[in-house]
């Protein structure tokens, strides 16, 4: 792994993450209760408060990150997205063929939604009063989120590591802070190395799943039409392994991304996540969530963020003390909320 070049007058800073699992759980639970009591309306306020808490408890050099979206923006975006979503649900029940056409129409629309969603998220994130910005455009999103995944499929996923690298470059390389563009100089080799490890883990997973599948099929012999839910144990095992595989990949790639990300003479990062550590946190969280029927979701989120923050170092130059904000944060939350509603959130990193 290449050590990133350091800047001449840089100073190093830890990322201090002061949120506590219990503190966030309290906030999250009460907000969820208020959301339920208001039939979902309060959800927009809950989202803002949850993010304000998590961002506000993340500080670098005693300056806290800021989440600047307003509940009204989110509520409007959410209602609009809900309307579109309901039309989809309604149409696909009454006319499956028309629904098929609508889903096809969604394909050219989705890059626009992705760009809008990223813009909303970036622009409502600020550090020291200066908002981030996303500079990717429609064609870029079309290429990275529609064309490249097709390329990956056509090459029997041999090109997938490269495609993921390109997507990461699109998402991070189009980030601007105070007019300074970030660059992500990741190497394709690192992605293939991570993919190879993932491939080996997957083979083990496949053998395990195949053997348990054989077991289930034997017990089902002679019974009536197979009940989809009798596949539940297998589905759970598959989820488990997909989490395992994902976290191995994430742990390996996260360090590489952090060390390849920089804005010239302004900021660079170092990340010391270990596969074992990251995997341990992921498994701990999975157990917590399963045994609390999902109630430990907020605690799990804090535990994971705390681990990542503790392993990351930021290097800043004195230029950070004199940056000027370049963007407003007034755009609609429709893209982001639609992404959540249609479950196409970008949770790649």
């Amino acid at each position: 792994m290449t050590t990133p070049e350091s800047f001449a007058n840089e100073r190093s800073a830890a990322i201090e993450f002061t949120a506590t699992p219990w503190g966030y759980t309290k906030l999250w639970l009460v907000n969820m209760l208020l959301t339920l009591a208001t039939l979902g309306i309060y959800g927009a306020w809950a989202k803002v408060r949850n993010n304000q808490y998590l961002y506000g408890h993340t500080s670098i050099e005693d300056n806290r990150l800021q989440y600047l979206a307003t509940p009204k923006q989110i509520l409007l975006g959410r209602l609009l997205a809900l309307g579109v979503f309901l039309i989809f649900v309604g149409v696909s029940m009454v006319e499956p063929i028309a629904a098929g056409i609508m889903y096809l129409a969604l394909i050219p629309l989705s890059p626009w939604l992705i760009v809008q969603g990223l813009k909303f998220t970036y622009r409502n994130t600020a550090y020291r009063n200066v908002r981030f910005d996303f500079k990717g455009d429609y064609m870029g999103a079309l290429y990275h989120f529609i064309v490249l995944p097709l390329v990956a499929a056509v090459t029997l996923y041999l090109a997938l590591p490269w495609v993921i690298k390109k997507i990461h470059q699109f998402m991070f390389g189009n980030c601007e802070y105070g007019g300074e563009k970030l660059q992500l100089n990741t190497s394709t080799g690192q992605y293939y190395k991570a993919a190879l490890v993932v491939f080996l883990v997957s083979i083990i997973a496949f053998i395990l799943i195949a053997s348990s599948m054989a077991g289930t099929l034997t017990t089902m012999q002679g019974s009536e039409a197979p009940n989809p839910l009798s596949f539940l144990p297998i589905i759970l095992v598959m989820y488990f392994f997909s989490f395992l595989v994902q976290s191995v990949f994430n742990a390996m790639i996260r360090n590489h991304i952090a060390e390849s990300l920089k804005a010239d003479e302004l900021v660079r990062f170092e990340s010391r996540i270990t596969v074992a550590g990251y995997l341990g946190i992921t498994l701990l969280n999975a157990v917590l969530i399963l045994f609390t029927l999902g109630l430990a979701f907020p605690a799990a989120k804090v535990i994971k963020m705390r681990y990542i923050a503790s392993k990351t170092t930021v290097f800043l130059t004195p230029r950070i003390d004199h940056m000027a904000n370049q963007v407003e944060g007034k755009e609609s939350a429709f893209g982001e909320e639609a992404a959540g509603m249609f479950d196409t959130d970008l949770s790649i990193v």
Binding site: T35, G40, G43, R78, L82, F85, E337, G340
Partner: peptide, 8 residues
């Protein structure tokens, strides 16, 4: 969608 959209 309204209540649990933020879960992941």
């Amino acid at each position: 969608g309204l209540l649990l959209g933020d879960l992941e």
